[in-house]
Simulated scan of single mutants.
Amino acid sequence: MTTAVFLAHTAAPSGAELATLRLLDALRATGRYRVTMIYTEDGPMVARMRARDIETLVVRGQFDSRAMRIGTGVLGLLTGFLALLRLGWNVGAAVKSAGADVVVAESTKALVLGAVAARRARVPLVWQVHDRVSPDYFGRIPAMAIRALARLACRGQLANSHATATTLPDLPTAIAYPGVELPVTQTDPRTRPAAEAVVVVVGRLSPWKGQDVFLHAVAALTVRPARVMLVGGTFFGEEPYRAQLEKLAAELGVPVEFTGHVDDPSEYLTTADILVHCSVLPEPFGQVVVEGMAAGCAVIAATPGGPAEIIDTGVHGLLVPGGDVGALTAALETLLDDPAARARLARAGRDRARDFDIHASARTVADFLDTMVTRGD
């Protein structure tokens, strides 16, 4: 049986980390791979991995996962990079002890770790990419540096969408969508009248996720829904953004429920009429879009990016240009005013969500890793 070791620089429960949890569980279930997860800090994801009996190690070093954020100065980036290189050497010892046949880096920072760790353990490195490596997200020079490092250090790449793959260096690449764990029982679409409807946005509170655009769109509605909910917390130094959203909601006169971080948003998704995804930058994939569809929500999602690979607009949901308040307001009006159309989109979306089952994603990853290991023999 092949052994794959996965690396992550943070144990905070954001979208990419939760997708990795699902993947490792499903990859192990194929019976083809033994999996080990290595984090460089303790945190909620360590306990979650271990709760599923996934071997999980913590290798600490002099690196703060909050360092090297988008917008960090040159000195901060260089200091963090050097700390990652040093930590990567220690991680390499753990990778070697785990008997790894291949190492998979689960973030850009983990890519730096993996470049050293895989070299020390003498195994191939694969980068599983959850973010578009583009100037609009990382900045021009950091994006160039990341692509150069991947080209030098990696044998292959796993991209979470075709949109992400277009931003990556020319290496062997497979598209492995972040699969979801489909509900055992189907949930019927909700068809409340507009004034009784529930509309949710699910995801980390972050400026690029566009929750402010959503609030402006709700404020412009002719008939506002009964409940408007922002489901998600703040990570990675973005805590002040929640206060900004609370102030904006008050100024606009839009009553909003802020839930904070929740471990499992399914209870909100299975009761909502409409899920809104409203990122203002192109979304690498948008796994919450699939989760909402699987839960019976009618979904509105922002383009360009991954959601356009999930939704055929007018069939499985509605697509709107990211950051366009008027278009989002119009889409909300359309779905709120016509519960029958809302239900039709929700049912088609629920069927479409089956195409993103985590077990299909795990088979794609297993097949690709097989080629990486074979090439290293």
Rank of each mutant, 00 (worst) to 15 (best):
S14T: 15
P240T: 07
T40D: 00
A153T: 07
A348T: 07
P240A: 07
F285G: 00
T303R: 06
V256P: 00
T164N: 03
G286R: 05
A197L: 04
D64K: 10
A110H: 04
R120N: 06
V228T: 08
I38G: 03
G61L: 08
R375C: 06
A51N: 05
G306S: 11
H261I: 12
G179H: 07
V228I: 13
D170P: 01
R363C: 12
G322Y: 04
E291N: 05
G233V: 05
R192P: 01
L18S: 02
I38Y: 06
T313I: 12
T334C: 12
V276K: 02
A29Y: 11
T222R: 14
D136L: 11
D367Q: 14
V276Y: 06
A163Y: 02
A348R: 11
R352E: 01
A83E: 06
A148P: 02
R242N: 04
L182P: 00
G43W: 08
V184N: 11
R224W: 02
R28H: 13
I146M: 05
I54F: 10
T234P: 02
T234L: 08
T371R: 11
E333A: 15
L248G: 02
G306A: 12
A366K: 06
V325K: 08
R363G: 09
I175W: 01
D101V: 09
Q244I: 10
P169G: 05
V299K: 06
T334V: 14
S361V: 07
R69M: 13
T222Q: 14
D367R: 14
V35G: 00
E267P: 07
A67S: 15
A353D: 02
A110R: 03
T270Q: 14
R363I: 12
E257G: 03
V199T: 05
G73R: 03
I54M: 09
L24P: 00
V126T: 03
A195E: 15
A8I: 10
P193G: 09
M229E: 15
R48I: 07
L158N: 00
L205A: 07
V373P: 00
R69L: 13
D351H: 11
R363W: 12
V373F: 02
W208E: 14
G76N: 01
Y241V: 11
L24G: 00
P255Q: 09
D351K: 13
V262P: 00
A16F: 05
P321E: 10
I300N: 01
F6Q: 01
V58F: 10
G80N: 01
D273G: 01
T374R: 11
V104L: 09
P44G: 08
E333W: 10
T167S: 13
L7Q: 00
V201L: 13
E196A: 13
D263W: 12
V74N: 07
